[in-house]
Amino acid sequence: MTPGGIITALIVGLIIGALGRLVVPGRQNIPLWLTLVIGVVAALIGSAIARAGGFADTDGWIDWRELLLQIVLAAVGVALAVGFAGRGRRSVTR
Rank of each mutant, 00 (worst) to 15 (best):
I62V: 12
I15T: 03
D59I: 06
G5V: 01
L36G: 04
A50F: 05
M1K: 10
G54T: 01
I11R: 02
I71S: 07
D57M: 09
G4R: 09
G88V: 04
R51A: 08
V24D: 00
D57Y: 10
V92T: 03
Q28K: 14
T2M: 12
Q70T: 08
R94N: 06
I62K: 07
G13F: 01
A42T: 03
V40M: 12
G53D: 06
G17L: 00
A9Y: 00
I15N: 03
Q70A: 12
W61Q: 13
T2K: 14
D59K: 13
G13D: 00
G5N: 09
A50L: 04
I15W: 01
I30L: 04
I16M: 02
D57H: 07
V76S: 14
D57S: 06
R89M: 03
L10F: 05
L32G: 13
T8H: 12
L67W: 15
I71K: 03
G54S: 03
I11S: 02
G54L: 00
I7Y: 07
T93G: 09
I15M: 05
M1H: 14
V78P: 11
L68S: 13
L10C: 05
F84T: 10
P25D: 05
T35S: 12
R94Y: 06
G53C: 01
A74S: 11
W61I: 07
G4E: 15
I11M: 03
S47A: 11
I15V: 08
A9H: 05
V76C: 13
I45A: 09
A18H: 08
L14A: 14
V12A: 07
L44W: 15
N29M: 12
A50E: 05
I11K: 01
L34T: 11
G77A: 10
N29K: 13
A79L: 15
L36V: 14
V76Q: 11
R90M: 05
G46M: 01
G5H: 05
A79S: 14
A50Y: 07
G86F: 02
G88C: 00
A85M: 11
R87M: 06
A85Y: 12
A18I: 02
G53I: 03
S47G: 15
V40I: 15
D63F: 04
L68Y: 14
Q28H: 14
R27Y: 13
N29V: 08
M1E: 14
V40Y: 01
I30F: 07
F55M: 00
V41I: 14
T35G: 09
T8D: 11
E66H: 11
S91T: 03
G13M: 01
E66R: 11
V82Y: 15
V72I: 15
G54Q: 00
L44D: 10
R94K: 06
A9W: 01
G86A: 08
I38R: 06
V92D: 08
V40E: 04
R87P: 00
P3M: 13
A43F: 13
T35L: 05
A85Q: 11
V92H: 07
L22N: 05
L68H: 08
R94I: 02
G13I: 00
V78N: 13
A75D: 12
V37W: 12
D59G: 11
W64D: 07
G83W: 15
A79D: 09
G77H: 13
R65F: 07
L32P: 04
V24Q: 01
A85E: 13
A52Q: 09
A18N: 09
L10D: 00
V40F: 10
